[in-house]
Each structure stands twice: as C-alpha cells, then as structure tokens.
Simulated scan of single mutants.
Amino acid sequence: MITLIGKDLAKEGQEFVFLGPADECENCRFKSSCVGNLELNRKYVVVNVKENEQKCPIHSSGLVIPVEIDRAQIDVLTASKNIFEGSTFTFNAPDCDEVCEFHDLCFPEGLQEDDKCLVLNNNGKHNGECKKGFKLNKLTLGFVI
C-alpha cells in the first residue's frame, strides 16, 4: 500500500501507528492517497521509500514523500493456549486493570479486540511475573488477516 509520510520519517523500517488525520488534511488534494487507505489505530512499517516530494504544512520538514507500507509485526503477551507458529487466533485483551511494566505488551498498539492474527513466532513462556497470575506467552504476530 502507498501513503505519504513526513520526509524526515521516510526511512525503511520506520514504524508508526495511524491515529487519524489532522484537521488540515480535510481539504487537502492528497488526502485520499495520504490518509485515505490507512486504518485508525493500526501499526504500519515503511518497506520502500519513493521519490517525488510534496509540500505539507503538518510535518516539521514541510514535505511529505510517498512510501510503500505494510502492517507492522506486533509483539504481544497472551494467556491463549495451543498457539504455535503459523497458527491463527482471535486476539482478546486480558481482563486486567493492573498497571505494570508489561501493560504495553498485553495491550499492544495496532492490535484491536477480535482481530484475527497470524502467529509468526512463538517466543515461549514470558519470564516476568504477571500481577494477575496469568501464565503468559510472548508472540510475534504478522499482519492481521
């Protein structure tokens, strides 16, 4: 998928979470090719940087550049069982209101409730202690199916 990103951010491997368009995007002639294909609260990674800069008032460099993006891989901690590399499962956030050092892995940016996920890597049991007593596995997820 192609989108536009600030020139200073246009680097292969750069990850970002799309949090929605700025107000200035509403009447921009590049809106459909810039933010039109992006899903709110999804995590993306830049896989190829193109040429052809365009002016853009919302980026610090004042310029955007076309980039090819894919959904980014996401690391997650889950108590789901019977998960192996290549399997799919439905993501459901844990029933947890604890604030701890693992919160961002249990509730990762870019992953939403009931997403169908592909397990790229099962990194095994998580060594940290869960305050709720959950036995957690650390997974790397590919694109959401």
Rank of each mutant, 00 (worst) to 15 (best):
G110D: 02
L139P: 15
E53Y: 14
R42V: 15
N41Y: 14
K135I: 11
C117I: 01
K11A: 09
C34T: 10
F84H: 15
A79P: 10
E24Q: 14
L111S: 05
L139S: 15
A10E: 07
G110A: 06
E53L: 15
A93Y: 03
P108C: 02
D75L: 10
E51V: 14
L38V: 14
F134M: 13
S87A: 12
V144S: 11
D95R: 04
G13Q: 06
P66A: 03
D70L: 07
E15R: 07
V46N: 05
F134T: 06
I74E: 10
F16Q: 01
L9N: 13
H59D: 14
S80R: 02
D70P: 04
T3K: 00
V49T: 11
I5N: 06
T88Q: 06
N92M: 06
R71C: 03
V64Y: 03
C100H: 00
E39F: 08
P66M: 03
L120F: 07
L38Y: 14
G133C: 02
Q73A: 10
D95I: 12
N92P: 05
L40K: 07
V47Y: 13
G86P: 14
K131D: 08
A72I: 06
V99C: 01
K50I: 15
L105D: 00
D115C: 01
D104R: 00
N41T: 15
F89D: 12
P108G: 00
S33K: 13
V46H: 08
K7A: 11
P94I: 03
L63P: 01
D75H: 05
K138E: 14
V119F: 09
E15Q: 11
V119N: 07
H126A: 12
K7N: 04
K132C: 14
K116R: 08
E98Y: 00
K131M: 06
L111P: 02
D104P: 01
P21L: 04
E15K: 11
I58H: 10
G6H: 00
F107G: 00
H126I: 00
F16C: 03
I69M: 02
Y44K: 13
R29W: 09
A93M: 04
K135N: 07
L77Q: 07
A22H: 03
C106Y: 03
Q14R: 05
A10Q: 05
K135G: 08
T3R: 00
V45D: 09
L139Y: 15
P108N: 01
